[in-house]
């Protein structure tokens, strides 16, 4: 394990505390944070099956919408606790992902990406069409606030919970990556026949990883709707799923924390970049290309290289090394 890898979780935890303190009660910062969490959870979802398992399934606008609409529909049509919408959304989106995975099991690469993107587009059209369920083009607006044990859950509470969820999801995937399941999943991505011949079902691995990804997408949708108090067909367009595809590569695909780093960068570039109007997404696109061509391990990989170089530099020029060097030098 590299020096940076050992410190990733404590550094991420420290960053989480700093971000929570920075967001505070500022509405604009809360918007930034929730956008970052949405991108982050979608990217982590993609990480679970695309980066680890080489299944380029990208219908994330559908999974996020399912999570958001589950909350909206439950709020408007029932008196049940709105927290129930979270497991309901996760189960429905995972079921949709598994069904889509079963029908597209034989596909890989851009063939799979194309079909799942078209599914995402068809799902977006269905959201507008199904006025009776989704409210059609007007979407659903939350008519009551979230409560937990009788206390009101404020926007700030939700944003903090969303940030903690993002941290836990990245930490969980980091653990999963090195677990027997994660190792089998990664091996499936590289050599599916070898995994199949060792008695592990590659189909089951793919479907489980797709379900995990879709579940994370639904969680993102739930938070998005809960914080914004509404869910519309255009809340999470297909372009978001398309953008999210690049986030793990930008941040660094060798660790789920890379997806979080990428989500921070894309939020900063597409939402908060004010130095040159309207070019944030272009800057992101160029950054992705530069990283893919010149720094294939992403920003985290680049940071690791810089740290390793700095450590080498300190060791070479540091006092201990100088003493050692003086010690072995022959006396004049």
């Amino acid at each position: 394990m590299s020096r940076l890898a050992r410190w990733r979780t404590p550094i991420a935890f420290a960053m989480l505390i700093l971000v929570v303190l920075w967001v505070g009660q500022n509405g604009y910062r809360q918007d930034l944070a929730i956008l970052m969490v949405t991108y982050g959870l979608i990217s982590l979802g993609l990480y679970s099956h695309y980066i680890m398992g080489n299944s380029m399934s990208v219908a994330y606008n559908a999974y996020v919408a399912i999570g958001g609409y589950a909350l909206g529909v439950l709020c408007v049509r029932t008196d049940l606790s709105m927290f129930l919408a979270l497991p309901i959304g996760i189960v429905i989106s995972a079921a949709v992902a598994v069904l889509l995975g079963l029908t597209t099991y034989k596909l890989s690469g851009f063939y799979l990406a194309a079909v799942t993107l078209l599914f995402g587009e068809a799902f977006a059209a269905w959201l507008v069409d199904s006025t009776g369920i989704t409210g059609g083009a007007s979407g659903v607006t939350l008519t009551r606030g979230l409560t937990l044990f009788g206390s009101e859950v404020t926007r700030q509470h939700l944003v903090i919970a969303a940030l903690v969820t993002l941290f836990l999801a990245a930490w969980g995937l980091d653990r999963l990556r090195t677990s027997p399941f994660g190792i089998a999943l990664r091996a499936k991505g590289d050599a599916p026949r070898a995994v199949e011949s060792s008695g592990v079902s590659t189909r089951a691995l793919t479907l489980v990883s797709l379900g995990i990804g879709a579940g994370l997408g639904a969680v993102a949708g739930w938070y998005f709707a809960a914080v914004n108090l509404s869910m519309l067909p255009e809340s999470v367009p297909l372009s978001v799923a398309f953008v999210a595809l690049f986030i793990p590569f930008l941040g660094g695909y060798r660790s789920p924390w890379g997806a979080v780093v990428g989500a921070v960068v894309v939020t900063e570039l597409t939402f908060n970049l004010t130095w040159f109007q309207d070019t944030g997404t272009l800057a992101f696109a160029i950054a992705v290309l530069v990283v893919l061509i010149f720094a294939r391990r992403g920003l985290l990989g680049l940071l690791g290289d810089v740290l390793a170089w700095a450590v080498r530099l300190i060791r070479r020029d540091g006092p201990l090394h100088k003493e050692g060097r003086d010690h072995v030098q022959p006396s004049a």
């Binding site: 690049f246 272009l282 992705v288 290309l289 893919l292």
Partner: peptide, 9 residues
């Protein structure tokens, strides 16, 4: 991925 990113760019 780079060609898809090229499309995006």
């Amino acid at each position: 991925m780079a060609l898809v990113a090229g499309l995006f760019a």
